[in-house]
Amino acid sequence: MNNPTFTLDGKTIPFTEGQTIIQAAIAASVYIPHLCFNPEFKAHGSCKLCTVKANGRKTASCTAQPQPDMIVESNIQELNDERRALLQMLFVEGNHFCPSCEMSGQCQLQATAYELNMMSPHFDHFFPDRPLDASHPEYLLDFNRCILCSLCVQASRDVDGKNVFALAGRGINSHLIVNASQLAETGFSGDDKAAHVCPVGVILKKRVGFVVPVGQRKYDLLPISALAKGD
């Protein structure tokens, strides 16, 4: 028997039992903007960037499952406008100075902003004061860029079994912490999964910034929507 299908922006997408909308879309090479979703981890639907309209109702496509013959809209102006506003809020809440950031060209937040034609931050910058944690000999934490996606928290807890990272505070006061006074005192290691999941530029291997020349960085040649996994 053929797999059931739904339509995503007019395109027929097959899906299997248990798949979410975004998983089925990625399998069919269709891009839905997202930040806190990483195919390797259980989705938790926090950034809301992946919101689509499923049979007219807004839902996070990283957690919602499709129904047969469901009509899903994603790449439409209304949703893209909202996504852009979400991105703009992320940009002003932290300190995202792309011009001097070593992740420029390799950052999912920046690539998604380009994808959605974000031309300016629009809102007033918060300019939060977030000192770096450079205590670890091999890794640096630049909290200025954290978008609170929780991926490092999940990776450290679920894969590394370490709980190095956690999100603390609520609402606008949410922030990333480590489970000691500084990173060097946690059990963190460069071999951890958590060292390699940050979609922006918070968890950085030291002394290798800017080794990849312009033109060879992840998003230099193709926009994020054209990459296989969409990230």
Partner: peptide
């Protein structure tokens, strides 16, 4: 001050 040194050549040119 307080920034990692490898960022400096790219930052100061601004």
């Amino acid at each position: 001050q307080g920034r990692p040194y490898w960022e400096v050549p790219v930052m100061v040119q601004r």
